[in-house]
Design a protein around this nucleic acid. Sequence first.
RNA 1: GCGCCAGUAGCUCAGUUGGAUAGAGUGUUUGGCUACGAACCAAAAGGUCGGGGGUUCGAAUCCCUUCUGGCGUACCA
Length: 584
Amino acid sequence: MQKALYYINITEKNKRGIIMNYREYIASRLESITGLSCEEIKKVIEIPPDPKMGDMAFPCFILAKTLKKAPPLIANELMSELNNDIKFEKVQAVGPYLNFFFNRAEFEKDVLTRVKESKGSFDKSEEGKGKTVLVEYSSPNIAKPFHIGHLFSTAIGNSLARIYEYLGYDVKRLNHLGDWGTQFGKLICAYKRWGDPKVIEKDPINELLKIYVKFHEEAEKNPALDDEAREYFKLLENNDPETTKLWQYFRDVSLKEFKRVYDMLGVSFDSYAGESFYGDKMQEVVDILREKNLLTESDGAQVVMLDDMNMPPCIILKSDGATIYATRDIAAALYRKRTYDFYKNIYVVGTPQALHFRQIFEVMKRAGWDWANNCIHVGFGLVKFPDKKLSTRHGDVVFLEDVLNESIQKTREKIEQSNPDIGDKEEVAKRIGIGAILYTFLKNNREKDIVFSWDSMLDFEGESAPYVQYSYARGRSILRRCNTDFSNPDFSKTTSDEEYELVKQINAFGNAVSDAADKNEPFYITRYVTNLAKCFNKFYNTHPILKGDVDVQTQKARLAIVDAATQVIKSALYLLGIETVESM
RNA sequence: GCGCCAGUAGCUCAGUUGGAUAGAGUGUUUGGCUACGAACCAAAAGGUCGGGGGUUCGAAUCCCUUCUGGCGUACCA
């Protein structure tokens, strides 16, 4: 029994998940029996929909033609060939499928040993060593509130950054601040007219928002205001000292407020180079595009025509000669390539801007920059209200900070009623409250819209961060109470369905991380860790560890399982930007 | 009009190199705390996978068509 795995050669490359080794092994056995190639077999081997059917299955359809036999018959014949293999508990033919059942104790030993040896970084990889991945995310506008919609980009970007880091990439977090554009002309205009420095000093973002909203109301009645705003922006562009000073002030107070929210979320950046940073880097882009003969004049503007790609033209210079966001984004991409020599350049920006990115990436390709192919737009849906869309211009915003505080407050109340004696309630409430909000933004396909609702946002039951955090806390509680040394357990007594399924789920972590990175989709991890917690809770409810009369060997093995499960839950939550608590 | 995305249980959503009986959570009904932590577990009920056609041994998944919704459609970002 102990030797069952000996002839499986675990190579350095193949270390990730013993499942891979089983696949390899099954393929090599079937290769010699069926004459199919190893690669062909590996491709069709699958995980059965129900664990009761086995751990892996080989569908026999592909052999039907060559052997001229019905698949169920083939499955039966293969079964008799393989049934004495020591590596499997059993091999079973069910209809056209050949189902393999692993040796559970061996499997558990392998997985849990690997978790333990990883010391908190299970399945961490070095595949990205020496490669830089840029993640642009969050990117709020200066002098405007950090609202609930910004959390989408912030949560996804932060998670992706951590995921790529876990895979060994050198990650640079970029906050492309919206700190330039005609909107600042409007703001300065509003400030000159209605701004009271003393009032604004006290609560800058809110007061600036007020006058910004007022500007739009007044401008509807009096269009001359818009012209005035354009004048102010022109002054800003020409480095007029007074206007620039004002702008700098707006930027400073805004960043200060943003950073407060980022601290709450545990989010950080390597660069805050926003739109203003690229002001002097756009002329070169215009020159390059002109030199490569890509610019065409159209309605007075300089554009790159993209009709052959079925896209509207990409405007590089407006008819008044001014640059536009496309120019800025192209300049930024070029700057980033030169500065970071990125392997991937990821933009976490809403799906409504999908066309914009397709356009500028295409323009960059036409400029001869093949690295444009490594620029990726990672889109996400809208945060909506049941009845309307968020609009800063009309002042109907939900501040992210308010949402976070509300959630923390609710957690506080919950702790007070269910577990009032724990230490550091504030920190615990913060981690759980914020985790719950982050989870709701990371639990589904990122392109799906989210309809804002306090009820669902503050629902701490079922699929939620608190559910996962709770599982973790229960596991840690057991480990805290026990005095047993479980360093060298024997898993022959922990082969029940619940125990085995939990270990299988632990083992699947690496796949979840790779999937999340491949698709730039954090929700693969969210789903994974929720399943892991579910498996843990089921195990927890069916198998006593410290209570009752559990024999020492069984207890040690179960403790080892708890230890590994909590460790992997923590790692997975970390990749989502969600923290754990020891008790809650 | 054109482009992109979506339509799966009452609600919110998983489920693509085509495979076994379409799955969770929530809500509803019900059972389990003198506790290794009930923010938990267990059970029941709930489905023409928007409609129609096609491809094949087999389709939620691929193709065509149609309906509905969202977003985007050159000088805002």
